[in-house]
Structure formats: structure tokens, C-alpha cells
């Protein structure tokens, strides 16, 4: 029975060690996630100080005021969903192509996908300002006789910026899941009478669903909080909740209202993530995920 006691003691020790090893992480989360969230919540129930900032109060006015920002929320959701969809439409064929290349060529292509991201995000977005500005693509289009088109400071410009910047976040999880996909399963499907499209729908897509969902989340969540791309490529006209938050904290200094908007944004994202987890677990258990 001594051995039993020893192992019990060992378990106790290992629990203590586990707690010790987790301490930095726990402290990190407590300090940088939980505490700020609580502050945000408290602020959201407060009032704006006369010169701006926070004044203690207990009211729901800030939440009641939120419908005035419905446009920003709607814009953000729409652009995030649309951007995710576009990333998917562009990223899936790209990931598929990458996953089906061999050896050196694949490595080279993967590096090419990553190379632009060695420069700063801001520089890349500023570059798009020039490309989409009237001296860029519109000038070329006009030269080719397509008439005048406006790109910069339009929702389309913001969408282009979003797809460009977030594409790799979509491509890499997809690439991993497609690369792992056993190509013999595709042959088996064809052998059993399924054409290319039927095979894609019944085998390729469900088996890359995990990559697809994680890619979609990796893209969707940050777009929901996006601020820089709409600010630079949207000219202050394409407005995300992120931009509203920046304005509320940095210009009109209405911290309580900004906090309320931030809390609701977090809730919206949380809802999206829950939806994602639901879909993900269904993908695991269900016989076939039919996304299309």
C-alpha cells in the first residue's frame, strides 16, 4: 500500500507543479483579458465626463444609444462575412493548387504567398492606396477605354484590401487540410461513379471542412475588429465598428458609449465563434457536411 500512498503524493505534487507552470498564463489572462473586460463593462454603464472620458454612473443609456451605430455594425458584419466569403472563394482554389503541386514547386509557391507579408501591413495598405487611387488602376482602365471608375475610398477598395491582407490566414489552414487529404479517396470516389463536382462536394469539401472553418474564423474575427484598412482605403467613409470605436475614444472621447459598443462587438464575435464551434462539431459527427 506504500506505493499507493506514494503515487497519491506524486499526484498532489504534480498538481502543484501544473498550477505553478500555469501561473504566468493565468496571471496574463487575468490581467490582460479579465480585468480589462471588467473595466470595459463598468465604463459602459457610466457617463461621459464634461471634457470627455469617463464619469462614474450606473445607467444603460449607452446601450440604448447603440442603435444609432447600427449602420457601422451592419457594415462591419456585412464586410466581414463578405470578406470571409471572398477569401474563401479566392483562397480555396489557391490552397488546392498549392496542395496538389510537388516538392520544390510547392515550396516556391508557398514562399511566394508569404513574401508580401515580410513588409509592414501599413506599407502594403498604403501601396494599395496608390494602386486603387485615380493614378493607378482607374487611370489604366480609362486608358483602355473603360471610362472612369472610382476605386479608392469605396467599399470595394476596402474589400480588396481585406481580401489581400487576410488571404494567407485563409489559405494556410485550407492548404494544410487539403495537403493531408488522401488523394486515393478522390480516386475511390471517381471509381464509384462520382464525377469531379460530386467528388468535390462529397469528399474534398467535407474532408477540408475543418481547415475551411478555422480559416473562416481566422479571417472573420480580425475583420470584425478591423480599423486600419477602412481608415486608409475607405477615406473615412467606409465605416467599421473599429473606426467608430477609434472615433469614440480618440475624438469625441465618449468612453462609456465606446465601451458599450466594444462590449456588443465582443458579443457579436462570440456569437460567431459559437456558431463556428457548433458547425465544427457537426462536421466531426455528421456523416457528411453539406456546406453548399
Amino acid at each position: 500500500m506504500t506505493s499507493g500512498n506514494e503515487s497519491a503524493g506524486g499526484r498532489g505534487r504534480s498538481r502543484a507543479v501544473t498550477a505553478l507552470l500555469l501561473a504566468p498564463t493565468s496571471a496574463w489572462y487575468l490581467l490582460l483579458l479579465i480585468v480589462p473586460l471588467i473595466i470595459l463593462l463598468v465604463f459602459s454603464l457610466g457617463a461621459r465626463a464634461p471634457e470627455g472620458g469617463y464619469a462614474p454612473a450606473l445607467q444603460l443609456d449607452n446601450y440604448l444609444e447603440l442603435p444609432t451605430r447600427a449602420t457601422a455594425f451592419f457594415n462591419t458584419l456585412w464586410m466581414a462575412a463578405g470578406g470571409t466569403m471572398l477569401c474563401l472563394l479566392v483562397g480555396y482554389p489557391l490552397a488546392y493548387y498549392l496542395a496538389t503541386r510537388a516538392g520544390t514547386k510547392r515550396t516556391l509557391l508557398l514562399v511566394l504567398v508569404v513574401v508580401p507579408f515580410w513588409t509592414s501591413f501599413l506599407i502594403r495598405t498604403y501601396a494599395w492606396m496608390t494602386i486603387l487611387g485615380n493614378q493607378g488602376i482607374p487611370a489604366i482602365a480609362e486608358g483602355l477605354g473603360f471610362g472612369h471608375i472610382a476605386l479608392i475610398n469605396t467599399p470595394l477598395a476596402v474589400m480588396i484590401g481585406i481580401v489581400y491582407n487576410y488571404l494567407p490566414l485563409m489559405v494556410f489552414p485550407l492548404y494544410v487540410s487539403l495537403e493531408r487529404l488522401d488523394k486515393r479517396l478522390l480516386e475511390a470516389s471517381k471509381d464509384l461513379g462520382a464525377g469531379r463536382l460530386a467528388t468535390f462536394r462529397q469528399v474534398t469539401l467535407p474532408l477540408s471542412a475543418a481547415g475551411l472553418l478555422s480559416g473562416a474564423m481566422l479571417v472573420f474575427i480580425p475583420i470584425m475588429g478591423e480599423y486600419v484598412i477602412p481608415a486608409l482605403l475607405g477615406g473615412g467613409k467606409v465605416f467599421f465598428v473599429g473606426n467608430a470605436l477609434v472615433d469614440l475614444f480618440l475624438q469625441s472621447r465618449n468612453w462609456p458609449f465606446g465601451s458599450a459598443a466594444a462590449i456588443v462587438l465582443i458579443l457579436v464575435i462570440l456569437f460567431a465563434v459559437t456558431l463556428y464551434l457548433r458547425l465544427g462539431s457537426r462536421a466531426g459527427i455528421q456523416r457528411e457536411v453539406s456546406i453548399l
Partner: peptide, 18 residues
Amino acid sequence: AYRRNVNTVFQHYALFPH
């Protein structure tokens, strides 16, 4: 392949895991 009335038993079975 998908129009041939021929079926194959693959070396590693290639059963659909999902």
C-alpha cells in the same frame, strides 16, 4: 473512371473517413 462499370478495391482500402 466514374462512367465505367468497373470498381476497384484499393491497396489501402481508401475508405471515406467522414
